[in-house]
Design a protein around this nucleic acid. Structure first.
Lengths: 258, 258
DNA sequence: TAGTGGTCTAGACCACAGC
DNA sequence: CTGTGGTCTAGACCACTAT
């Protein structure tokens, strides 16, 4: 084991677990432990620092929470290798893509990996209040809800729930599992709602347990929460709520100076 | 203490700490424990579930990591009250704001709170490689770096590091602590670089310890990382790296369908 | 089988908040 | 002073991985 330094156990010093976390963090940053590499076992760290196991584990918990380490049961603790980031430009909704039969997720996946979709659920329902207001619907109006998960090379990267007013989606392929070439937006334009503008609201938070499970997130990985509203003139024709693994996404926006 | 249910300690059941975390999470979601309210103490939870203290603490650690709970030493553990979210639209860089003497952070703070800036550091330096490439500079070119922290009603919300080519900033107010009315962008336009476009790249991750300290972040709060590049025609005139508390920000972008 | 991390116990002493 | 959470010890048994 490479030299990790020692800790100061005097009462006025920092907590020992914090010192160990700092030393390990510095070792990782300095590449003493490279991404993907195994760090010393808990037993070795106990011996090296002369502390109890829980103290070592607390230090490791700090670094797992920062997303720097991942544990693999029975194998060891490893430095998390940096993820491949997907750069998504805001032209991913270009009409040219739709006319070429590409839905947005397929367009943005080009050159990154093989896109796929699963856990598709389509239903008619009463929308939540905020969705209803965003769509400008009357209190008892219905929407078609499309819920699904997107994967890249088999790795789940995004959960997406779309809501389209029933008056637009009724009887179209939007109500089927497979909405056809060009995706939902192509179908919406076919029934006469030419898309003119998008609005996206971006925030971040820690995932819920269900999101962690569906996105197969390691601890210490937040999610990007994006709500997009598609407009045809002044009328909103779709609201989509997406939850993206922050590991896999980098969103790019361009806008003119006005 | 309200009824929290019981745990199943049989070997084939879920780990006890996970069950306790689930029960507490459900109690919080169902408003049994409302935001800001104190949850039962560790001793009470130990007695209620009949487990050791470390088991209770592990359950609490899970919920702290999710951002649902915060501990206050000597007082108790509390349900985190939901933060005020700042909605920031992408017109915050409008020239009209600059001409009214408002820098971007002041413009975006209107109606939200009282903006302020501290920890200002201005220096000339060699930029990091990625900044240099983004600015299209030659290998030994220098930039003016402006580092500062933004606060809203005294609460730190954002760390921002700007880099402006020395050829643009030299001898202007950009090299002073206070860049004057309208901010940096006003000064850049004054020396003949009319801004035409912005690019923003948005991602999220857990904060480093330094960022946690400077932004006064509770555990379980990620940061939004935004790099913005300002363009005058084809030439990049500024790169700014911002780290924002995800608690306080909701970014809004609008873009036309093309 | 040996070594790893995952869970859990039953204590201890400390620092801080509030009465 | 009491009760709270923060830190730490020294064990135990389990589940998983690799050989």
């Amino acid at each position: 084991m490479p030299s990790l330094g020692t800790v100061d156990k005097s009462p006025e010093a920092e907590p020992v677990f914090a010192q160990i976390a700092d030393l390990l963090r510095a070792a990782i940053r300095s590449q003493m432990f490279a991404p993907g590499q195994k760090i010393p076992s808990e037993s070795e760290l106990m011996a090296h620092f002369g502390v109890a196991r829980m103290t070592v584990r607390e230090a490791l918990a700090v670094l797992k929470g920062e997303g720097l380490l991942v544990a693999e049961h029975g194998r060891g603790v490893f430095v998390r290798s940096q993820p491949v980031v997907r750069r998504i430009a805001s032209d991913r909704f270009a009409r040219a893509h739709r006319q070429a039969g590409k839905a947005a997720f397929i367009a943005e996946s080009e050159g990154v990996g093989k896109p796929s979709v699963d856990q598709v659920q389509v239903s008619r329902e009463k929308p939540a209040v905020d969705v209803r207001v965003e769509l400008g619907l009357r209190p008892h109006a219905s929407v078609v809800a499309r819920r699904r998960r997107y994967l890249l090379d088999g790795t789940p990267v995004e959960i997406a729930d779309s809501f389209i007013p029933l008056t637009i989606a009724k009887g179209t392929l939007i109500e089927q599992e497979n909405p056809g070439p060009g995706g939902i937006y192509a179908r919406i334009e076919e029934v006469g709602h030419r898309l003119t503008e998008f609005k996206e609201e971006v925030s971040a938070r820690m995932p819920t347990p269900e999101e962690r499970q569906r996105l197969a997130l390691a601890s210490g990985v937040p999610v990007l929460v994006v709500r997009r509203v598609a407009f045809s003139g002044d009328v909103a024709v779709e609201v989509i709520d997406t939850v993206k693994s922050a590991n896999h996404y980098l969103l790019e926006y361009r806008f003119p100076a006005v």
